[in-house]
Design a protein around this nucleic acid. Structure first.
Length: 399
RNA sequence: GGAGGGGUACCCAAGCGGCCAAAGGGGCCAGACUGUAAAUCUGGUGGCUCAGCCUUCGCAGGUUCGAAUCCUGCCCCCUCCA
């Protein structure tokens, strides 16, 4: 196979921040029939979100060009915990946790990648076999001073926040992964540049041609400030309920709308111009379109429509949604606090009391004022907690 | 190994014998408002059989009528010296 550089390069470079160094990539394309692309995933967080999607989409592009994608599950390195961007040492995972987490992983990954064309490897395959002697050799390729160039390490060191020795091993082992799979290209978020550069050193140390680094932008989460991450609780999960996805997209700040269109939906510059115009005239409408398109991307047109209708109904028109979970109450009635607590709408009974005092719990639109209030399953009764939680009261014996 | 500083709620951080379920900020939740789960304003934010009670200030003991605050031991972190 030979590559038509003029055709392939623009695809590779779309939505990419760094391509280091581009000349090496062109050189590889000229010389090599098989281009190996490495992507490493940390199974400590099995729920993938839109931030991962940006990366996976890039991998899919490369896969479609004909590059070979090697998907590395960092089951071994997960026991260290990636210190990237962290202000404190991560808790290390046990082997069982890692195994458990990787299970749910692929179902999500292969919504984007072609399962048939993706090679999956676990880095314990080679890392677990290393001897202490091997580790010393690998570790000797990098110095403490260079490790401390990494801005998160530098920051922690400057601020007297602990850094464990094993955290220095993370970039090194990740680099060794690149050597183990003979990576030509490694793809990841911009926060991975340091690790990817270490990999180049390690490959060179072992006499291998260094990989080319390709980074995609980090997507800010729903808070609009921090990168999307489960630990910041600002993420939109790929397998979340369509209604949740739609709602979460609607909650991003307006300033992020355009970026989402570009990075998640891959809109062209021309299309983006139109969106820009749309945002100016009707920001809410532009965001609604974004939410719709993202649900459509992850599910289908049908779910997107349903999610949109649900959102408009519940939040714009303030009506009750169509499908509400039911809760059975005995005919003699039951205390309102117990109902919302047992139905899982609040995390404690104290919280329920607080919400009642804030007029946040309503029955058929009427705020509950009495803590002692009993709810009987007569007639149509809908309990609403806050803005988005609903419960339909039904009789315990079924009626 | 020596000397000093420190561990407080989801996070940061005050408090240093009773008025401490613990200031302040962030986050989160709610109410009002609206363009929406945006922005802004206001309130709330350990639990419970809730005018009271129970559990929480690194862990385990102790002093005291009373401890986040004082004492002892242990664990952990940081700085400087070696």
């Amino acid at each position: 196979m030979s590559w038509k550089i003029g055709e392939v390069l623009p695809v590779i470079k779309q939505n990419v921040v760094d391509l280091i160094p581009e000349e090496e990539l062109i050189d590889k394309l000229k010389r090599k029939d098989e281009i190996i692309v490495k992507y490493g995933a940390d199974p400590s967080r099995p729920d993938l979100h839109l931030g991962h999607y940006v990366c996976l989409k890039k991998l899919r592009d490369l896969q479609d060009i004909g590059f070979k994608i090697i998907f590395i599950v960092g089951d071994f390195t997960a026991m260290i915990g990636d210190p990237t961007g962290r202000s404190k040492t991560r808790p290390r995972l046990t082997e069982e946790e890692v195994r458990e987490n990787s299970k749910t992983y692929f179902e999500q990954v292969f919504r984007v990648l072609d399962r048939e064309k993706t090679v999956v490897r676990y880095n314990s395959e080679w890392l677990a076999k290393l001897t202490a002697k091997d580790v010393i050799e690998i570790a000797s390729t990098y110095t403490v001073a260079r490790m401390l160039e990494r801005d998160d390490f530098a920051k922690r060191y400057r601020e007297n926040i602990p850094i464990s020795i094993h955290e220095f091993l993370y970039p090194i082992f990740q680099g060794y992964d690149s050597y183990a799979v003979k990576a030509d290209i490694e793809v990841g978020g911009t926060d991975q540049v340091f690790n990817f550069l270490v990999a180049r050193e390690i490959q060179k140390h072992f006499g291998q041609e260094p990989q080319v680094i390709l980074t995609v932008p980090l997507l800010e989460g729903t808070d609009g400030k921090l990168k999307m991450s489960k630990s910041y609780d600002n993420y939109i999960g790929l397998t979340e309920d369509p209604k949740e996805i739609y709602g979460k997209v609607m909650s991003i700040p307006d300033t992020l709308i355009l970026k989402y269109f570009r990075l998640v939906l891959y809109y062209t510059d021309e299309q983006l111009k139109k969106i820009e115009e749309h945002i100016k005239n009707d920001p809410r409408g532009a965001k609604a379109k974004l939410a719709y398109e993202i649900v459509k991307l992850l599910y289908s047109e049908k779910e997107a429509k349903e999610a949109e209708e649900h959102f408009n109904r519940v939040f714009r028109e303030r009506k009750i949604p169509e499908n509400i979970p039911e809760y059975a109450v005995p005919v003699e009635g039951k205390n309102i606090i117990e109902i919302v607590y047992e139905a899982g709408l609040v995390s404690s009974k104290s919280e329920a009391r607080r919400l009642i005092s804030q007029k946040a719990i309503k029955i058929n639109g009427e705020p509950v004022t009495n803590i002692e209030a009993k709810v009987k399953p007569d007639g149509e009764k809908i309990i609403k907690v806050g803005k988005r939680k609903f419960l339909k009261v039904v009789s315990k014996n079924g009626s």
